[in-house]
Simulated assay, not measured.
Amino acid sequence: MYDIAIVGGGVAGRSAGIFTARAGLETVILSADESILARNAHLENYPGFPGGVDARTYLELLREQAAEAGCTTVADRIVAVTPRAENPSVTPREDGSPEAGFVLEGENESYAARRVIAASWPDSEYLTPLDVGRRQRGSKHVVQTAETGRTAVDGVYAAGRIADEPHQAIVAAGHGSKVALAAVQDSETAFYHDWVAPAGYFTGRDRDVPPACEEIDDAERRRRDERARERLRDALAEPNDERPTMHPNVDRD
């Protein structure tokens, strides 16, 4: 059984996955469609890219980062989420956990997870078996949440646009990360901050390095910096020839 199942592989979903996986939670991202950000012609308001960045290149880097953090990605469309106790169709791994969790029914197969993060704008129909509280917004529905992304159902969260957050990539990334941290907290995983500090930052004050933190020496810092610059050079060396996805309502003929 997965610790976290994230429905939606866009900016909010993969940002959430980076944090849950780095916290040591077994995370699966279930995604059937490309991110709506793929419709963007050029991403120009994302902090850290003063000249902007090709949206498809950004999404490729995000997918790579989530994978390196430890996320598993499965291409499947989720059609229903039910409490595991009410749906015995999946027999998850038994490891003594008292948390019953949920069954996510996909078009291809079913999945079991202790916690679910919905990040699948505009689709939220699969949540109707759960009384999470959906509100109509135009022709679509958003999920009602607390500030942390928690819904009315314990163990179910919503992140990004589906949680009625603004339709901006940086907001989706930030909210997905914030919701992930709520899920990490609820899992009772030992966690302080996801923070890489210079050697001595904690131990130099006679403190143990807190959970999810790390101290690295200067040689390791330089090694990681070189690797990061090399990855960016490779990603940005050539133009991305993939064209933006047009809005489905536009006649392409």
Rank of each mutant, 00 (worst) to 15 (best):
D95V: 02
A183V: 01
R93S: 08
G17H: 01
V116A: 04
E214Y: 08
A173F: 01
V209P: 10
V153Q: 10
Q185A: 15
A158K: 04
D123T: 07
Y111G: 06
V142W: 02
A228W: 03
A190H: 12
R222K: 10
R39E: 14
T203I: 03
A32Q: 05
F19P: 09
R227A: 14
G160E: 11
P239N: 07
G106W: 03
R221G: 04
G24L: 08
R14Y: 14
A163V: 13
R137G: 06
H42R: 12
I162C: 14
A172V: 07
E44H: 04
W121R: 03
A152Q: 05
R135G: 06
V142N: 11
V179Q: 03
E107A: 12
P47C: 08
G51E: 15
G8V: 00
G96L: 12
F19W: 12
Y111W: 10
Y201S: 14
S139V: 00
R224V: 08
E230R: 15
E226Y: 01
R77C: 00
D206L: 12
T245A: 02
L37I: 06
F102T: 09
A85N: 04
T20Y: 01
A163R: 03
D251Y: 13
S89R: 14
P248M: 10
E26A: 07
A237R: 12
D217H: 10
I36H: 13
E125R: 15
A172F: 05
G160P: 03
E165V: 05
P88K: 01
G52Y: 12
R222H: 06
D218M: 09
V143R: 11
E147W: 12
V11P: 13
E242C: 05
V116I: 15
A197F: 00
A16Q: 06
A237K: 06
F191W: 15
A118P: 08
E86G: 12
L30D: 10
D76I: 09
H175Y: 11
L127C: 13
A118Q: 08
V143L: 09
D33M: 13
T245W: 00
G8A: 05
S97T: 15
H167V: 13
E214D: 10
S15V: 10
